[in-house]
Design a protein around this nucleic acid. Structure first.
Lengths: 237, 237
DNA sequence: TTTTACCGGTTTGTTGACATTATTGCCCAG
DNA sequence: CTGGGCAATAATGTCAACAAACCGGTAAAA
């Protein structure tokens, strides 16, 4: 459920080799198969993917452009290293971009798209009722919701930034900073309010709701992190 | 004055060959040396830059990731084609991102940075008085102002998007859609108001002012474009 | 006359090999 | 025993050559 339907599942010719390597490598990074900070050896990876270093380097150049890897000169490539401040920075960017995406979607998106969004929230509600506490699928569902709103904005300047860059970084961070506990039910309510505003075509209000929603999530993470720091500071380990 | 101080002008080793080709090629595209929509022949460009196709393809992969060129499979690379709707989309993205950058800069940036911003506006005022009507330097100055605010946000998620992606696309569009007439003096006043709010550390207000400033510029362009369309429609040519 | 198939030339995507640079292990001095 | 310098090793950046795919023109067929 969810994930990225960007490639329309064309099996015979998924494009060039470099494209395939790019996709597989990105998935390997985001899914945690390659750990953050881990060194990437070109010969080893090329052999693992069964291609030469040419297409691999092409893919590495693209991934570096999307900040999923870092490539200091003559020192090879490393998976990007994560940090809490960077995660907070990400949330600030999301607040601005997804707020605007929400406004544009509310103003422009066809009725059917907004209906589909509402239907998606129904699914999430049932999913939450069924296997309650399955934080992973909840998180994926949350990202899926935001992902679809970005696409509904129909703004080709916003969509790539959100869907091709920030979205994957978020998935990477979620795997690492597992924190963010029981916010799913209240988050679902906020999602409802956002979609309601969009269906009323109130772009300004929808933007405000989305921004508050993301800011709330950010503050939640900041609090959890601060508490964690305090526990480590005063306590054991 | 102006331009991008990203590379700290290190003459001996400006990095790898691919880096140099990337920078030169980006400049060639943004400066109009390579026209929008123009096909890019790899052997020809490689010869022109005096390198092999390897580093060139590396640079092409990066430029494609930044949406400065398009690379359909097996059909070579073309400089991105411009359109008026895309420009409007850009302005929406800028409104969101630069608004947030402005808020963060107002809250975080050191006092000296804000003073430097005010000083920059003084320069712009004198420049406008001196060679009044030199639209080119005014535009460059305007971009420089926005560029510096992005950096003052100190948010490594926002800065690359604005400074490495949108900024260069803006330069490219300004060369093509030359319109935007006498908005420089009123724009300068708006810049002043923004910096004033920042110096008062009023992040929310600074964000609002920046967003209105960019939205105003967008509407100005939209009006000019609509008028231009009407003239073509009813008139000659 | 228009459409379609073909074919040569060109370009791209890919590969393997070469030179330069960083990293690792080792040896020796302190 | 520890730390610094040095050589061997391995990796990166780059280049030139190969194979598959596209483009244009030509000619045959409807």
């Amino acid at each position: 459920m969810g994930a990225i339907p960007s490639t329309h599942s064309l099996s015979p010719t998924p494009g060039t080799l470099a494209d395939q390597v790019f996709l597989r490598l990105r998935e390997a990074i985001v899914s945690g198969d390659l750990m953050p900070g881990e060194r990437i050896l070109e010969p080893a990876l090329a052999a693992r993917f069964g291609v030469s270093r040419g297409p691999l380097r092409d893919a590495l150049a693209r991934l570096a452009e999307r900040h999923l890897i870092e490539r200091p000169v003559h020192q090879g490539a490393r998976v990007v290293t994560l940090s809490f401040p960077k995660l907070i920075d990400l949330y600030h960017a999301r607040e601005a971009l997804e707020g605007m995406a929400c406004r544009l979607a509310a103003e422009r998106a066809p009725e059917a798209t907004l209906e589909a969004l509402a239907a998606l929230l129904d699914e999430h509600e049932q999913g939450a009722a069924l296997h309650a506490g399955a934080a992973y699928v909840q998180d994926e569902g949350d990202l899926d919701f935001h992902f679809r709103i970005a696409q509904a904005s129909e703004n080709p300047a916003l969509i790539p930034i959100l869907c091709d860059q920030l979205y994957h970084l978020m998935r990477l961070y979620r795997r690492t900073f597992v924190a963010q506990g029981r916010r799913s039910t209240t988050a679902l309510r906020e999602h409802r309010a956002i979609v309601d505003a969009m269906r009323e075509r109130d772009g300004a209000f929808a933007e405000q709701l989305m921004r508050r929603h993301i800011a709330k999530a950010r503050r939640n993470i900041e609090d959890l992190y601060a508490a964690q720091l305090r526990a480590v500071d005063t306590g054991e380990e």
